[in-house]
């Protein structure tokens, strides 16, 4: 069976994490991760990325936005 390169491995990471690879492909990929520490590290960082982004991009809604929304809806709902 042919070996995966780093390039192959990285291109399969999304489906690997989603659990959508066939057993055969998954086994080959895991063999590559076992032999290749840069890819293993890459996988870790790839997995951590969405969590970090979620944290970084969470914002508190400013109080004035909430007030404006309430005022807007009261005006509009009266019309309806």
């Amino acid at each position: 069976m042919s070996h995966h390169t780093c390039k192959d491995s990285i291109s399969l990471m999304l489906e690997y994490i989603d659990g959508e690879l066939t057993q055969d492909v998954r086994a080959r990929l895991e063999a590559h991760f076992g032999d290749c520490s840069p890819c293993e590290e890459f996988l870790k960082s790839y997995r951590a990325t969405p969590t970090l982004c979620r944290k970084a991009l969470a914002k508190k809604m400013p109080g004035e936005v909430a007030t404006k929304l309430t005022d807007f809806l009261r005006r509009e709902l009266k019309k309806a």
Binding site: K7, K44, S45
Partner: peptide
């Protein structure tokens, strides 16, 4: 097809507080 970049360790990725500069970078 081998990776040439060094991969950093995302050490405190799961930590509670987020560094303000990291937040900005993201």
């Amino acid at each position: 097809g081998s990776l040439v970049d060094e991969v950093s360790d995302f050490k405190d990725a799961e930590g509670e507080a987020m560094d303000a500069e990291l937040r900005r970078a993201i």
